[in-house]
């Protein structure tokens, strides 16, 4: 399958297979005017299968969302047809409005204009806790 290479834009590579659409939605790529290609289940020597997203424009990507949802991903910045910069993801220290607190006792459940902030509390365990009530994200 051939997808034209891009001249100036971004390639999000090494996405865990099956997560491409989720990232497309979370990064709100549906709002872009430029060409966006999602390649699903591409062959990868490292990962077996992977998803790739190609965006034919230089846009600001929310690295926090990407780092949280797709920590294996890499972001390639393409300028004039060649690789200008390659960024590896890492888990962000803080997530704002990416995940939401479901603890019914948390202040965010009654004051909905508050940003939902989660802090990384254990990098090895990928553990995030709500900044307000400290409930663990995976407990919800």
């Amino acid at each position: 399958m051939n997808i034209d290479s891009i001249k100036n834009g971004i390639v999000i590579d090494h996405i865990e297979a099956g997560k491409g659409m989720e990232i497309y939605n979370l990064l709100r790529l549906d709002l872009l005017d430029c060409s966006v290609a999602i390649i699903k289940n591409a062959t990868s020597s490292k990962m077996g299968r992977k998803d790739i997203i190609k965006i034919d424009a230089k846009i600001d990507i929310d690295m926090d969302i990407l780092g949280y949802v797709a920590p294996t991903a890499t972001v390639d910045i393409i300028v004039d047809g060649s690789l200008c910069e390659k960024k590896k993801m890492s888990l962000p220290e803080k997530l704002t409005n990416v995940i939401f607190c479901k603890n019914p006792r948390c202040i965010t459940t009654t004051e909905q204009e508050l940003p939902n902030i989660f802090n990384l509390t254990n990098r090895e365990k990928r553990e995030y806790r709500c900044a307000y009530c400290e409930t663990r994200a995976s407990e919800q």
């Binding site: 948390c106 202040i107 965010t108 004051e111 307000y132 009530c133 400290e134």
Partner: peptide
Amino acid sequence: RHPKEGAPLV
């Protein structure tokens, strides 16, 4: 004092 967790932080 507030019944909701995190209210004093806010």
